[in-house]
Write a protein that binds this DNA or RNA. Structure first.
Lengths: 235, 235
DNA sequence: TGGGCGAAGATTGTATAAAGTTTCGCCTGT
DNA sequence: ACAGGCGAAACTTTATACAATCTTCGCCCA
């Protein structure tokens, strides 16, 4: 009767103190409250969450593995600053993976999932309406994660979590206009295609959605150091 | 001869004590010297590498993130035991990603790379010839990693590292015959296609290679708990 | 006045010790 | 004899202390 110990394949982010730290920092980064390059001191974070450096360090290492934090030896952890080359890689990977993910999402469609998706669309519209850019950015990423969860593929889900987190940083760094408005409509169209069980349309919508996001970026080749300098001088 | 030359943006695996532990354990798992389900005690490993539990713990957490180690709360770390469902996900992901990777490898082809690939093929043939199953398994995985490195895409490389490590465990658990011989020829054909800069052929060879590997697996649906029990009873 | 040297301060890396949890053996009671 | 529970040992988890390294700021000298 030892059948109670494994209800889920992997649930690393529940009721853990380390996970609370990781999710708190992740949320701050994804909502653009922590900017790329920001130093994440261990004592600093530890004091905020009332935790010891041991736990903070564990959380930061996990974030480093996810690619949204860089750990420099003997210097500490910093919010990652993706280069234009990184950005192109991330979006190429998303263009490869996400159409397949929506395929599987269509296979897994159910009234409950449709409900969840439309509830999410409502949240996105509301955040957009009240001009809450932070919530918009976060919800936009969560939409894609939701579809990955729907697909039921834990591997794709893990990969996509990384890609979404990095995308958030990339968009913050390289977006041309400050108009995150166009995304919502695409999301709605994707949900419609899923509801209709139309794989081809779903794939196409997802692909064009990703293409539009990337098209709004300004990915110049020179080293990011110049960008950093420009930012500082501009501010 | 690829020991310590990597002054790139992120080089998490050089001259680090944690990295030595991680790579040592990884090699042991990938060469099937540590079997799925084996407990990895912190003291045990720490004593082997002359390191403190702090470092061992860090290494094990990284391996857990890569999916080849499971950490159960308050119980310790164990070599992962992928389920048949996991196996199907892993190979589906590989079928999706690796054809794209060889595409990029063809773009990046150069005499130096061709040399490196053929040297690797020679190593594989030699290991096969002398019946060194451990080296064969390791080299077979390294071939795919080599092509990912050749592609120059760090994201794909990171993803594929995970997939390869998991594949090694999967093959160990679910392979029908004990004949890893067929792989080498495929690898040679892939290299030939790359050398000819024939993307279509390279993609096709890679895909059929992956399909054959998966076809040799026996992925039955029942829960892995039964498999575990059967193994124990058999031994 | 500008640059280089050096010590103090701060921060990270590592080890060790304290605390909590699980596991397994043993003992008792029926 | 066997089921159930108590308790000690082993291990993981967390916290703290120590060592190593980097940064910063002041001082001295050209």
């Amino acid at each position: 009767m030892a059948a109670k110990s494994r209800p889920k394949s992997d649930a690393p982010d529940v009721s853990d103190r380390v996970s609370r730290i990781r999710e708190g920092v992740t949320a701050a980064i994804l909502e653009h409250r922590l900017l790329p390059g920001t130093k994440l001191g261990e004592d600093e974070i530890g004091e905020i969450y009332g935790a010891s450096r041991t736990l903070v360090r564990t959380a930061l290492q996990q974030l480093a593995h996810e690619g949204i934090v860089n750990i420099e030896k003997n210097r500490g952890a910093f919010v990652a600053r993706p280069t234009p080359a990184d950005a192109r890689e991330v979006f190429e990977a998303r263009r490869l993976i996400e159409p397949t993910i929506v395929d599987h999402a269509v296979d897994a469609v159910s009234p409950a999932w449709i409900n969840r998706l439309q509830q999410h669309l409502a949240e996105e519209r509301e955040a957009e309406l009240r001009g809450d850019a932070r919530a918009s950015v976060r919800l936009s990423g969560e939409f894609h994660r939701l579809i990955a969860e729907m697909s039921g593929h834990s591997i794709y889900l893990g990969f996509l979590k990384e890609l979404i987190a990095r995308s958030s940083l990339i968009i913050l760094l390289y977006r041309r206009h400050d108009t995150p408005a166009c995304g919502t409509d695409h999301h709605a169209e994707i949900v419609t295609a899923i509801r209709k069980r139309d794989k081809q349309a779903a794939r196409a919508q997802m692909l064009s959605h990703l293409n539009e996001i990337e098209a709004e970026l300004f990915l110049k080749d020179p080293a990011a150091d110049e960008l950093r300098l420009a930012d500082v001088l501009g501010a």
